[in-house]
């Protein structure tokens, strides 16, 4: 069994509003799975179903091969987007309470908390009240509490919100470290650059339906349209470009006269570039020839817009 979590045709309705429509996902073990989608797409509902906070109207969820059960709660760690702490409770006491609710014994929770507090260099916060902490400080505590019981599956909903860039980096490294230790991670965010950095797989949910999923690298491959960034050294730019313009689509061409440098983008009919490269190198010196890979951001926007256009 290679998937930590599988959802099969999960549907959830709130009154007249369908929040999820037959969403099927396969979340592989030991990877970071990006759950993407515009606001109100149904991501949070899906995450709440995985956490057994709400229950699907139809469809099944399998955790590690078995249908999802209350006992699985202790194997999942969830950092919700809407998160907070009891304001008047002390940090240590509160962390202990939340850890115990996840099924850790008091002494075990204490040991692990001590480890994490030292690791994130917040050991002296133990007796502080939460209301004395800044937002970023509170987020650190929440992160620790989420991962403390060493869950098999971690769900982060916008984990970096509220962090300054330095601390966001620390948390990002911790997430990668957890993945290396074998944890599977579901990562929901709107920040596409962190999807790019972290995710191995993604799923895109839009208007309550899954419209795209798979390995990020595969999706990128599928979304490539054989556009290449080309940089050449040539004395007469027009003489080179004009014959090509008749056969291919060329855009963004710029020419630096002094250095005789020409840059342009070209869309080729297939990903077989050898003929074109031979043709080009006969006439000029090729400085740069890079395939343009679509960013997650582009894929996101294109898929959502395509979907909307079809309706």
């Amino acid at each position: 069994m290679n998937n930590i979590l599988v959802t099969k045709e999960v549907t959830k309705q709130f009154g007249d509003y369908k929040a999820l429509n037959k969403v099927s996902l396969e979340i592989p073990k030991n990877s970071i799975y990006g759950l993407l989608g515009p606001n109100g797409a149904g991501k949070t509902t899906l995450i709440r179903i995985i956490n057994q906070i709400t229950f699907p109207d139809s469809g099944t969820v399998f955790f590690d091969g078995a249908p999802l059960e209350p006992k699985h709660i202790s194997m999942i760690g969830y950092l919700p987007e809407e998160r907070g702490l009891y304001k008047s409770m002390k940090v240590g006491e509160q962390a202990l309470y939340l850890a115990q609710l996840k099924g850790l014994s008091k002494s075990e929770a204490k040991d692990r908390l001590k480890y994490w507090f030292d690791r994130l260099e917040i050991g002296d916060w133990w007796n502080k009240k939460v209301q004395e902490l800044s937002k970023g400080m509170a987020q650190k505590i929440q992160f620790i509490v989420t991962v403390l019981h060493r869950p098999k599956l971690l769900i982060f909903d916008e984990p970096f919100s509220g962090f300054d860039p330095i601390n966001a980096n620390i948390i990002k490294d911790e997430i990668l470290e957890l993945k290396n230790e074998g944890t599977s991670i579901i990562f929901s965010t709107h920040r596409m650059e962190s999807v790019e950095e972290l995710c191995d797989h993604i799923a895109l949910i839009h208007q309550s339906e899954k419209i795209l999923d798979g390995k990020l690298s595969d999706i990128k491959k599928a979304y490539k349209n054989n556009i290449y960034d080309v940089g050449v050294q040539v004395a007469n730019a027009d003489a080179l470009l004009n014959p090509m313009k008749e056969k291919f689509q060329i855009s963004h061409s710029t020419y630096h006269k002094d250095e005789e440098l020409l840059n342009f983008k070209i869309q080729l009919p297939s990903n077989d570039t050898s003929d074109f490269l031979t043709y080009l190198s006969d006439k000029t010196i090729v400085n740069q020839f890079v395939e343009q890979v679509p960013s997650a951001n582009e894929i996101f926007i294109r898929t959502v817009q395509d979907k909307d256009a079809h309706e």
Binding site: N51, P70, R83, Y86
Partner: peptide
């Protein structure tokens, strides 16, 4: 208080409401 401090979702991911 649990609602406004937004701790509620953290708690109900561990225990039944």
């Amino acid at each position: 208080e649990e609602k406004t401090s937004r701790i509620i979702e953290v708690i109900v991911s561990s225990v039944k409401p």
